[in-house]
């Protein structure tokens, strides 16, 4: 695991412990995806509204804790700022609000919305004739929503080669409505699909760097709770739960085991 990704996961645990909130396994699932995007796209944490910046939309908004810690790791604010996560007056809600948090481009939470907004952003960049790229991260559970597939059809039909959709394939919907083989489905919809190991930062960055003339889909094969055995083996128990102090010590130990 890359140091920055371990640091982000460590802070996700700290924030959850201090705040009593957080979807930890789903946040752990996307750390490498988020890091790859923020190490690839044009952005400036000191100027979050930089006009020529690329845009990222977290469509699966319930993974906000992973998002905030990734933004903190890239200099948008400090990790300590995020410790107020979920508090009454906090900027950092359990779903992100673009009017409160620098670096958040769209407020999300209800599933199946962010990708459509991202399609509109990418279309805007095309109409304006800019080189802006738009990235969005969707969940496999979220992809039960029909609006996800509407948005993909529209993106393909409007030839948005500036749009990249990262698909968090952490098998969260095996219990109800599995997507099956998402790469096949997105290919059938006309997208340029790459399938990568979702916890291999270099592989994701390499896939993002590959030129394309179509809507790009990165099916990232991930593990919920990746990095801590206790989380990855007890996903349902830890779906929405904050670690107590003794559990935090244990999870931090698992996360850092073999790190040196």
């Amino acid at each position: 695991m890359d140091d920055i990704c371990r640091k982000i996961r460590s802070e996700i645990l700290n924030v959850s412990n201090k705040s009593g909130h957080g979807h930890i396994p789903t946040s752990f699932s996307i750390v490498e995806m988020l890091t790859a995007v923020y190490q690839t796209m044009r952005h400036d944490p000191k100027r979050p509204d930089m006009p020529e910046r690329d845009l990222f939309v977290l469509s699966k908004g319930h993974a906000s804790l992973g998002f905030y810690c990734t933004l903190a790791a890239h200099g948008y604010f400090s990790f300590e700022d995020v410790y107020e996560f979920g508090g009454f007056d906090s900027r950092f809600g359990c779903h992100p609000d673009r009017t409160k948090v620098p670096g958040v481009e769209a407020s999300t939470g209800s599933l199946g919305h962010g990708i459509g907004i991202a399609v509109g952003m990418a279309l805007a960049a095309k109409i304006a004739g800019t080189k802006r790229k738009v990235y969005t991260l969707i969940g496999d559970g979220e992809s039960n929503e029909g609006s996800v597939w509407e948005a993909v059809m529209v993106a393909v039909n409007t030839r948005l080669d500036n749009l990249t959709v990262l698909y968090d394939n952490n098998q969260s919907q095996g219990r109800c409505l599995p997507i099956g083989n998402p790469a096949e489905r997105f290919t059938a919809f006309g997208c340029d699909v790459s399938e990568v190991h979702g916890h291999d930062l270099a592989a994701i960055k390499q896939a993002l760097a590959k030129p394309t003339d179509r809507v790009r889909i990165l099916v990232c094969n991930t593990v919920k709770g990746y990095g801590c055995e206790t989380l990855s083996e007890n996903v349902y128990e830890w779906h929405r739960r904050a670690p107590k102090p003794d559990e935090l010590t244990k999870l931090q130990g698992e996360l850092h085991a073999g790190a040196i």
Binding site: A106, H113, G116, I117, M121, I127, S147, A151
Partner: peptide, 21 residues
């Protein structure tokens, strides 16, 4: 853009267009 019979996405795309001015 005659975008299609996909009202949910029509509105989301409209929001995205608006976000960019």
């Amino acid at each position: 853009y005659n975008m299609g019979i996909c009202e949910n996405t029509l509105v989301s795309v409209t929001a995205g267009l608006s976000s960019q001015g």
